[in-house]
Design a protein around this nucleic acid. Structure first.
Length: 603
RNA sequence: GUGCCCGUAGCUCAGUCGGACAGAGCGUCUGACUACGAAUCAGAAGGUCGGGGGUUCGAAUCCCUCCGGGCACGCCA
């Protein structure tokens, strides 16, 4: 099995949902009695060349049972189809049966299916609550480009869950606790306090830079002066003990940071159902430790307390340090139990970098040993590391790229392009924001989660080709056509013609002719796959499936747009083409929406 | 050392529960704005799918092995 995500077996169902494919499979099954419709549907594939037809059925697997050569079987199937089955044409080529659907015959059903509500919302779940751990930045640290991944992947997954019938709960698990806060306080006391007293207290983004510079300086000086580390530890002990000054400074870091994060989230359009700091779980950890001890899972090892996981083939999970204090695994156990027991989570999903894969395996295994049967409904959705100029970004060394800087550049570039190409646009700032951010978010989501990303500003600012702006442009272009059509004379006749098209009844000849051209049919074929793509995206926890799909649809639409004139005089033909344009625009907007990207009417 | 992830065109990446000559975008070159938006479209050039074995009628896809890059492997999160 590929990937480290533990997949939900209940959702490992066949990926179907295209009515065209099912149609072909059903026709085929009448002449292939030894296979079920489902098996045939699963076997059908898209031929490498459109000239070969719409679908291809490989006859090779039947060769064993039928004890005949594949080309002979293929020919028999093709002949049987020609003799007694309507709705498609078949041709045997080698071991394949190439199928060409009778486009005109299926068109009414297809149009009806495309306008049905289930097309954009195929039901999979039954309202189960899915707690999604996403974004989860650290206090007193900048919101860097690295946090973008967890944030936008998590948001897209939450949208997909909601769409497919689950109840997602988006949780921002803020890193507000740990020994680094002792260091942060120590650094602030040593150098920062004086600066603030002199009135150097910056606000906003610079405040975070200020904290970061103190943190970096701390690590630099700690290399020469090891006593700093001890000082940091002492401050953390004071913080844990509730020392007023330590609490006050910690509170200041938290508030300043959350304000900054909130601004980023607003720009990205990300919302959370719960924002809970790690410190929230401080008083919940003793109960976990007690339970582990009662169940006899805790063992002493090298002075620390661990849970052995040899039977799972995993290294031991460290629960208590030799000084008796807790570790992040302890906290994550308490967090998971809270999310299940008190937040009512049926599934716990963690959108966290792949460097923590082992950690989550251990935590889930410990939960299982504790008798929590829901442990196998805990899923780690890992993603690759983001690096810059081939280097890993390091907070300690101050190697960070502020997401806001990147966003600002992208928005400025979008603004320039708008001035150049569409100076008459009304809400330029709003659109520039949507396009600039859309470029960044799409640029992240179009690639598979697992690969490491080598961040390139140049690439993030490229709006040509397979990009967010390309999809947004295509959508806006489609909307413009629709708006122009609405201005046309005789809207009543147009509306009547469109209603007829979506009723599932017989179509006027000029409407049928307009939609069965290669260019139009290609668009309809891509539209038909949308529900299946949504299911596949969630099943694989892979928003890039949706992004790739949006690109494919945009590409097919643009081809159609160039090949055909849409606003033609014939009412039926115009209505037919407009239905296609409207469906394409709706699905593009919908797919962008799932990815968390705005789809302005004009750009 | 052990485990996991990655290795496909100059660059960035799809395709990986096996299927027909390996697909996009960027970049390069050539065309298309007096039609609904040229942030577009059409076309060209460009690849030992990291190497080698194996399974199979058929392998980028599955198995083994090696090479290269990354991450993780006890008191950070």
């Amino acid at each position: 099995m590929k990937g480290t995500a533990i997949r939900c077996k209940a959702r490992q169902t066949e990926v179907v949902g295209c009515m065209l494919k099912r149609y072909a499979a059903e026709r085929l099954s009448s002449v292939i009695p030894d296979l079920s419709v489902e098996a045939i549907e699963a076997a059908l594939e898209v031929p490498p060349n459109p000239a070969f037809g719409d679908w291809a059925f490989p006859a090779f697997p039947l060769a064993k049972t039928r004890r005949k050569a594949p080309p002979i079987i293929a020919r028999e199937i093709a002949e049987a189809l020609a003799a007694g089955v309507s709705g498609l044409r078949a041709e045997a080529v080698g071991g394949f049966v190439n199928l060409r659907l009778d486009r005109a015959a299926i068109l009414p059903d297809l149009l009806r299916a495309l306008s049905a509500p289930e097309h954009k919302a195929p039901k999979v779940g039954a309202g189960e609550r899915v707690i999604i751990d996403m974004s989860s930045p650290n206090i007193a640290k900048p919101f860097g480009v690295g946090h973008l991944r967890s944030t936008v992947i998590g948001r897209a997954l939450a949208n997909l869950y909601a769409r497919l019938g689950y109840t997602p709960v988006r949780v921002n698990h803020i890193g507000d606790w740990g020994t680094q806060f002792g260091k942060q306080i120590a650094a602030y006391k040593r150098w920062g306090e004086a600066i603030d007293r002199d009135g150097g207290a910056e606000a906003g983004k610079d405040r975070i830079r200020f904290y970061l510079s103190l943190y970096v300086r701390f690590h630099e000086e700690a290399e020469r002066d090891p006593s700093l580390e001890a000082e940091g530890r002492r401050w953390f002990q004071k913080l844990e003990a509730g020392d007023p000054e330590a609490r006050r400074l910690w509170q200041m870091f938290v508030e300043d940071s959350l304000r900054e994060f909130e601004r980023m989230y607003r720009r990205l359009g990300v919302e959370f159902d719960r924002v809970i700091g790690e410190s929230f779980y401080n008083d919940r950890m003793p109960a976990v430790i007690d339970e582990l001890r009662e169940k006899g899972l805790l063992e002493e090892s090298e002075g620390a307390m661990v849970v052995r996981l040899d039977d799972e083939g995993l290294p031991p999970c460290l629960i208590l340090k030799s000084d008796g204090t807790t570790l992040y695994a302890t906290r994550d156990l308490a967090t998971a139990i809270y999310r299940h027991d008190e937040m009512g989570g049926d599934w716990l999903v963690y959108v966290v970098g792949q460097e923590q894969t082992l950690h989550f395996k251990q935590v889930f295994s410990v939960l299982k040993k504790m008798g929590r049967t829901w442990a196998d409904r805990c899923v780690h959705v890992p993603f690759g590391l983001l690096r810059f100029a081939g280097k890993k970004l390091s907070t300690r060394k101050g190697h960070v790229i502020f997401l806001e800087d990147v966003i600002d550049e992208a928005v400025a570039k979008a603004r320039e392009i708008i001035e150049e190409k569409n100076p008459a646009l009304e809400n330029k700032d709003e659109v520039a924001e949507a396009v600039g951010i859309g470029a960044i978010v799409f640029g992240d989501l179009k690639n598979g989660r697992l690969g490491d990303v080598n961040f390139s500003l140049e690439e993030a600012l490229n709006f040509d080709g397979e990009t967010g702006p390309y999809v947004q442009y295509t959508h806006a272009r489609a909307r413009t056509v629709l708006a122009r059509a609405a201005e046309d004379a005789d809207p009543a006749a147009l509306a009547a013609a469109k209603a007829r098209l979506e009723s599932g009844g017989p179509l006027p000849p000029s409407a049928t002719a307009a939609l069965i051209t290669d260019a139009a049919w290609a668009v309809l074929g891509v539209l038909d796959r949308y529900p299946a793509e949504l299911r596949a995206a969630l099943e694989r926890y892979e928003p890039s499936v949706v992004a790739r799909y949006a690109l494919e649809l945009a590409k097919a639409f643009n081809r159609f747009y160039h090949a055909e004139r849409i606003l033609v005089p014939d009412v039926d033909e115009r209505a037919a083409k407009l239905v296609l344009v409207e469906r394409a625009a709706d699905v593009l907007q919908d797919a962008l929406g799932l990815l968390g990207i705005a789809a302005p009417e004009r750009i």
